[in-house]
Simulated scan of single mutants.
Amino acid sequence: MNSNLELYLVTDEAACLGRDFYWVVEEAVIGGVTMVQLREKSLSTRAFIDRAKRLKNLLEPYNVPLIINDRIDVALAVDADGVHIGQSDMPFPIAYRLLGEGKIIGLSAENQLQLQEAEHWNLSYLAVSPLFATSTKSDIEQPWEIEGLQWARQNSRHPLVVIGGLHAGNAREAVQHGATGIAVVSAICSAPSPQEAARELKKIIQGSMLWRLQTTPDQI
Rank of each mutant, 00 (worst) to 15 (best):
I204V: 08
V36D: 03
V78T: 03
S108A: 12
Q206M: 13
D218R: 14
V25E: 02
R157C: 13
V83W: 01
G31M: 05
C189M: 11
R19T: 07
T215K: 15
Q116S: 11
N170Q: 03
A191C: 11
T136G: 08
P65G: 07
A52S: 06
I182Q: 04
E110G: 12
Q206D: 13
Q116G: 07
V10S: 03
P130L: 13
A15C: 08
I140A: 15
Q114L: 10
A198I: 12
W144R: 00
H84Y: 07
I182L: 09
P143Y: 11
F132H: 05
S156Q: 06
I204Y: 12
Q206V: 13
S138W: 05
S129P: 02
V36A: 06
A109W: 00
Y96N: 13
T34S: 07
E40D: 08
R172Q: 09
C189N: 00
S208H: 06
W144Q: 02
S193F: 05
I205M: 01
L58F: 00
A197T: 07
R97S: 15
E173N: 11
A168T: 14
L123K: 04
D50F: 03
G18L: 11
E173H: 12
T134I: 12
V24F: 06
A197W: 02
V36Y: 01
D218H: 15
R54T: 06
I49R: 02
G102Y: 04
A152Y: 03
V161S: 01
V25C: 02
N69T: 10
E110P: 00
E117Q: 14
G102L: 05
A191P: 09
E117S: 10
V83K: 01
S3I: 14
E13N: 10
D70T: 07
L7I: 14
R39Y: 03
A198E: 05
I182D: 04
P192F: 08
Q195F: 09
A52N: 06
V128E: 09
R97M: 14
T180I: 10
L107A: 06
L38Y: 11
R157I: 15
W211T: 14
R19K: 06
V29H: 04
D218S: 15
H177L: 01
I146T: 08
S3V: 13
D81E: 00
R97I: 12
K41R: 09
L5M: 08
E6N: 09
L7S: 02
N170S: 10
C16I: 01
S208M: 10
E13F: 03
L149H: 05
N2W: 15
E27T: 02
A47G: 09
M35F: 04
L55V: 02
G100Y: 02
S138Q: 12
A198N: 02
T180L: 06
S108E: 03
P159S: 03
L210Y: 15
D79F: 09
D73P: 01
A95S: 10
L131R: 03
K41Q: 11
L66H: 05
A118N: 12
R153T: 09
V24G: 00
P61E: 06
